[in-house]
């Protein structure tokens, strides 16, 4: 498979503090689903912020195909909190990223409605964000990012604030969308079960500055069953590596 994102020697520091990332190198295959796990504060969100252009790196390069295309943006980010604009109705929230991509208002509305249908909230188009449940808001957050048909979709613990049932249904929905769109996914989570359920590769970040401590391929057949021995083994293996890296970190 072809490489979509090529990260070389990336360094990021906040102010005068020691760098969060330094010499960070990684590559993402086009169409892959990568989960990123690691202890709290290691730099997972920071990595996503750099890839989405919110934070400028101190050094290093991020290469990805960036030709501007009508009605598309190369990268989109799903925030941990929904961050919907309260003064826009659901439909206008979904079309937010489409503005300025060369689509007419009619085209934007059609695309937004289509994306809303995709996440199963087509009938909610005319509602205000405060009239939605937490799970519905998170779906809109997802739809807003999907509507720009990104090459790379970044997700920062998007389901962590939801109850188990809602989380699982959104995970299945995300997988369905991934199969349909073949968007490259980079999914940060602290839920290892979620990582193994979704991803075909789980990357464990650790250390200070952070690097890739372990890189686990997940070759379980899809659709995956959580209560199989193979699944639990995969989760257990990653959990062991994670606690090892946390203990190492504490020892420094």
């Amino acid at each position: 498979m072809a490489t979509l994102v090529d990260i070389k020697d990336l360094a990021i520091a906040y102010g005068k503090a020691p760098p969060v990332l330094a010499g960070f190198t990684a590559a993402l295959e086009r169409g892959s689903f990568t989960a990123v796990v690691g202890p709290s504060g290691v730099g997972k969100s920071t990595l996503l912020r750099v890839l989405s252009g919110l934070t400028a790196p101190a050094a290093g390069t991020v290469d990805m195909p960036m030709q501007p295309e009508k009605g598309r943006r190369p990268v989109a980010l799903v925030f941990q909190e929904a961050r919907l604009l309260p003064w826009r109705r659901v439909l206008e929230n979904v079309s937010f990223g489409l503005e300025g991509t060369g689509l007419s208002k009619v085209e934007r509305t059609a695309r937004a409605q289509e994306t809303l249908d995709l996440v199963g909230l087509g009938q909610m188009a005319g509602r205000w964000p405060h009239q939605l449940s937490g799970g519905q808001r998170q779906r809109i957050n997802l739809a807003r990012a999907l509507s720009v048909r990104p090459d790379l979709l970044l997700l920062d613990e998007p389901f962590s604030a939801l109850d188990a049932i809602t989380r699982q249904s959104l995970q299945d929905e995300l997988l369905r969308l991934w199969h349909e769109t073949r968007t490259t996914m980079l999914f940060v989570t602290h839920d290892l079960d979620e990582a193994v359920y979704l991803a075909d590769r789980v990357v464990l970040l650790g250390g200070k500055p952070a690097g890739i401590v372990r890189d686990f391929p997940v070759d379980l057949a899809r659709p995956r069953e959580r209560d199989t021995a193979n699944f639990s083994d995969a989760v257990r293996e990653i959990r062991a590596a994670l606690s090892e890296s946390v203990n190492d970190g504490a020892g420094i």
Binding site: G53, L54, A76
Partner: peptide, 28 residues
């Protein structure tokens, strides 16, 4: 500030875009 970041993340980076899409509606 979180909403200003949403504007940045979705490509609305100019001051005018932020003014009309976030600042004015947010301070109405």
């Amino acid at each position: 500030k979180d909403l200003l970041e949403v504007a940045d993340a979705f490509g609305h980076r100019g001051t005018l875009a932020k003014l009309f899409k976030i600042v004015l509606p947010g301070s109405t």
